[in-house]
Structure formats: structure tokens, C-alpha cells
């Protein structure tokens, strides 16, 4: 068999294949639901209801989508330049660390100064964390996939060390958790008494800003050029290594905002379960969004909906909530296949 490029696909075809990809994912998930002895239709109904069936469900989905927008953006930016940042998980945790270091009373500043300061400091920390692997890639030719993956383990152990050491809450009854951030360092709730917080607004703004950078600036153009063909980009006079460094700083900063927003907006303190793999799920979000920063918002909400819905479903239907992870991973694989099929025709010869 061989692949032949198709002429520019029509809008209908472009939209048809993702729909097929989602359908294939649902068919596969149905098989798992049947294996669990439940009815697929009632399970999917419960997932949909749990994700969007009430005001509470919708707000919960948006709350869960918030960190995924940040990590999805981080991955989308990096992958566009073919910088394989698989370390969003580590960058997220570093953002959380900076937030509790600065936000638990060390800086007695008014909220209007303190919150932006912590936000920027988190971004800088995350950016520096990815700058390491980026330097190793550009200077020494060390593959960044492995270094960013290994850094995830190192950083989580580092956070564990801090939470059992200098950052440990003396009032925490021995639990490895930090002190709570002070009121002036918290992000306000969007609706009184609900969990959805200002971090969601920041996430949407970040997506728009990232979109502008990617589509309307020289840097964005250079990033796409480097991602498309680094040799050609170098030949065209684009400083490839410098562009990769800038990409790394942007990507690491965006991922760190996920940690900042979770701690300052939702959890209030830092624990070792701050992220149930948001960094890795960000890869799926970015791919589902076809690396488009605005698409990341929709993809993050979709993925968050599956997670929130599956949690609600598993409480009543008895199908393990891990089905959400399976669906999300399946969607990633079917989606990349679908995108390929919109651009190429498979010839069986």
C-alpha cells in the first residue's frame, strides 16, 4: 500500500474524518462497557449527563478543563515547532511550587500586585525548567523526549521532598501538604459558592494570546517554519536554535500556569496529587485541537467532560472510571489517523 497526497480537502471532508474518529472511539468504548456488563447507551447517557446535564455538571467540566487548556496550549506550541515537550507535568508542579512559596504569606502585598507577580514568577519557573532540555537539545543534541519525561519523575520527587521538608504545613497533621495560600494570593471564584474560578478566564485569554503569537507574529511564523522543515528554515536564515529556545520558554511557562491556577484558584494548597496526569492529557488535548490554540479550548472542555462525566457514571453504573482515560487515549490515536486520511489517499496496490 502507499499514500498519495490528496488535493486540498473540502471543509466537509475535513470535518467528516474527526467525526468518524470520535465515532470509532465510541464504538471501542462500547465494547469495554459491554465487557463490564453494562449497556453502552445508558453509560454514554450517564457520561453526557454527568458532563453537561446540569449547571453543576457544566461548571465542574469547565473547572476540570482549566488546567487542560494550559497544558494543551503548552504542548500545542511546542509540537508546532517539533519540540517534543512531554514534560508539562513537571512544569505544572513547578508552577504550583512557586505559587505556594510566594503565596503563603512571604510577600505581604495587595492582591492586585501579588496575583500577577505569582503568575509571572510561575511562568518563569516553568520556562526555565523546559529551557534545560531545550539547551541540551540545541547544544548537545540530547533528545528532549527522554529528558522531559525523566524530569517529570525528578520534579515529582522534588515536590515530595519539599512537602515533607521546608514547605510542609506544620498544622497539616503530618500530611505531606503545604500551607494554604493567603486570601490576597487566591484567584476569585467566578460564581459565588461554585468551584469555577478566575483561572478559567486566564486560560481562555492565554489561548487567544497564544493564537495571536502563532498566527500573527514573526515568532509564530518562525516556529511553524522550524517545525515544518528545520533545514529549510535554517537555509532561509531563521535562527533555528533561538526559535526553539523561545518556543521552550513559552511552552514551559504555559504549562506552569496550570499549576498556578490549580493551587491559587481551586485547591488552595500544594499536594502530591495536584495533577492526575494533566501534563500527559495535555498532549491528547493538543492533538485533538490539531495544535490550534483556539481549538485547544474546545478540546480541553471535551476531554474534561469525558473525565467528569465518567466519574459521575462510574458511581452509578459500576463501570470503572478508567474508561475515561481509555476513551481519551483512543481518541488521540483515531484522531491522528483521521487527520492523515484527510490529507492522503491510501492506495492498495
Amino acid at each position: 500500500m502507499r499514500l498519495e497526497p490528496k488535493p486540498a480537502p473540502s471543509l466537509g471532508v475535513t470535518l467528516l474524518f474527526p467525526v468518524v474518529a470520535i465515532a470509532a472511539t465510541l464504538v471501542f468504548a462500547s465494547l469495554l462497557v459491554l465487557a463490564a456488563g453494562a449497556s453502552p447507551f445508558s453509560v454514554f447517557y450517564l457520561v453526557a449527563k454527568g458532563a453537561a446535564g446540569s449547571q453543576f455538571a457544566i461548571l465542574e467540566t469547565l473547572t476540570r478543563a482549566t488546567p487542560l487548556i494550559f497544558t494543551g496550549l503548552a504542548v500545542a506550541v511546542a509540537f508546532r515547532a517539533k519540540l517534543w515537550n512531554i514534560g508539562a507535568e513537571a512544569q505544572l508542579y513547578i508552577g504550583g511550587v512557586v505559587t505556594v512559596v510566594l503565596g503563603t504569606g512571604a510577600l505581604p502585598l495587595p492582591a492586585i500586585v501579588l496575583v500577577p507577580l505569582i503568575l509571572v514568577a510561575s511562568m518563569v519557573a516553568g520556562a526555565l525548567l523546559l529551557a534545560g532540555p531545550a539547551v541540551l537539545k540545541t547544544r548537545f543534541g540530547v533528545d528532549e523526549v527522554v529528558t522531559t519525561l525523566l524530569l517529570n519523575f525528578i520534579v515529582v520527587l522534588f515536590v515530595s521532598m519539599l512537602l515533607e521538608g521546608v514547605l510542609k504545613d506544620p498544622m497539616g497533621l503530618g500530611w505531606p501538604q503545604s500551607q494554604r495560600v493567603i486570601a490576597d494570593a487566591q484567584l476569585p471564584r467566578l460564581i459565588q459558592g461554585k468551584r469555577l474560578h478566575f483561572g478559567f478566564v486566564i486560560a481562555v485569554v492565554a489561548a487567544v494570546v497564544t493564537w495571536v503569537i502563532m498566527k500573527k507574529t514573526v515568532l509564530g511564523y518562525e516556529m511553524r517554519a522550524v517545525g515544518h522543515n528545520p533545514e529549510a528554515a535554517r537555509f532561509a536564515g531563521i535562527p533555528v536554535n533561538r526559535v526553539l529556545m523561545k518556543t521552550a520558554l513559552l511552552s514551559g511557562g504555559l504549562a506552569a500556569l496550570a499549576g498556578f491556577s490549580e493551587v491559587a484558584g481551586l485547591k488552595g494548597n500544594l499536594t502530591l496529587d495536584l495533577s492526575p496526569g494533566y501534563g500527559y492529557t495535555g498532549i491528547v488535548v493538543a492533538m485533538l485541537a490539531m495544535l490550534n490554540p483556539l481549538g485547544v479550548i474546545a478540546a480541553a472542555i471535551f476531554v474534561a467532560g469525558i473525565f467528569v462525566g465518567a466519574d459521575a457514571m462510574s458511581r452509578t453504573a459500576g463501570v470503572p472510571s478508567y474508561i475515561a482515560q481509555v476513551m481519551v487515549a483512543t481518541a488521540l490515536l483515531t484522531m491522528v489517523t483521521a487527520i492523515l486520511l484527510t490529507r492522503y489517499r491510501v492506495r492498495w496496490k
Binding site: 509540537f79 517534543w84 512531554i86 498532549i283 491528547v284 492533538m287 483512543t330 488521540l332 490515536l333 491522528v336
Partner: peptide
Amino acid sequence: HVVGIGITLF
């Protein structure tokens, strides 16, 4: 890269 990470998650 993408497929490999996808297979790991899957």
C-alpha cells in the same frame, strides 16, 4: 512521537 505516547496512554 505522538503515536508512541498515545500507545503508552492507551
